[in-house]
């Protein structure tokens, strides 16, 4: 006693709680101190039991998980909170992180990952789902400036063809696009580079040595 991590679970899903209980029953490191069925109940329980870690379902009646998280972090900053969710969306995870969550678990988590996350968060680490880095450069054009201006690969091609002096008609034939598409690309390039007329565009191409 006293050695085990004291855990409070907040979830309104009975079957899920039973699953958690069966997994954590007689576990050497973790002990379920209490269970709350909604955010309001959770705040009362936490006030009384002062647990080490709270497993908090995002989707709950009365006060939802993210709201409850805010209160918890404001009033009991030292208590670690792991969000439980069926949502794997980056912006939901980010929101939880921004509001001070220490960890984030998907509800279909494996037993071993669940226990590891509880342990790590208890030790003061953050545990969030791993994300693949999304950003990728433009193949072919490595010009940092163009990338910063949000120029797409196709727009880069159009810039190159403008430089060689091709007309819209010639570009549309060469790139197998409609004239309207070429015109739209030109318009978008001007908008993105904040240029007002074709002369400025030409000047831009030359002075940036594209």
């Amino acid at each position: 006693m006293g050695e085990k991590i004291q855990l409070v679970i907040a979830d309104d899903h009975k079957l899920f709680i039973e699953g958690l209980q069966s997994i954590l029953d007689n576990h050497p490191e973790v002990e379920i101190a209490d269970i709350a069925e909604n955010g309001k109940e959770l705040l009362e329980i936490v006030r009384k039991k002062k647990p080490d870690v709270v497993l908090l379902d995002i989707n709950m009646p009365v006060i939802n998980g993210l709201e409850a998280l805010k209160y918890l972090k404001r009033e009991f900053g030292q208590i670690k909170v792991i969000m439980l969710s069926t949502y794997n969306e980056e912006h939901v995870v980010e929101k939880a992180k921004a509001q001070g969550a220490n960890g984030y678990l998907l509800k279909n988590v494996n037993k071993a990952d669940l226990i590891q996350t509880i342990n790590l968060v208890h030790l003061g680490q953050s545990c969030f789902p791993y994300r693949l880095p999304a950003k990728q450069g433009l193949p072919g054009i490595s010009d940092g400036f163009l990338e910063q201006s949000n120029i797409t690969k196709r727009e880069g091609e159009i810039l190159q063809l403008i430089k060689t002096g091709l007309t819209n008609q010639q570009m549309s034939e060469q790139l197998h696009l409609s004239i309207y598409t070429v015109e739209t690309h030109r318009k978008n390039i001007m908008q993105k580079l904040k240029l007002r007329n074709p002369a400025e565009l030409m000047k831009f191409i030359i002075s940036n040595n594209l």
């Binding site: 079957l15 899920f16 039973e18 699953g19 069966s22 997994i23 989707n59 069926t86 509800k107 279909n108």
Partner: peptide, 9 residues
Amino acid sequence: GNLASIKMN
């Protein structure tokens, strides 16, 4: 939620 619970159990 139910699927996650079934898995957990």
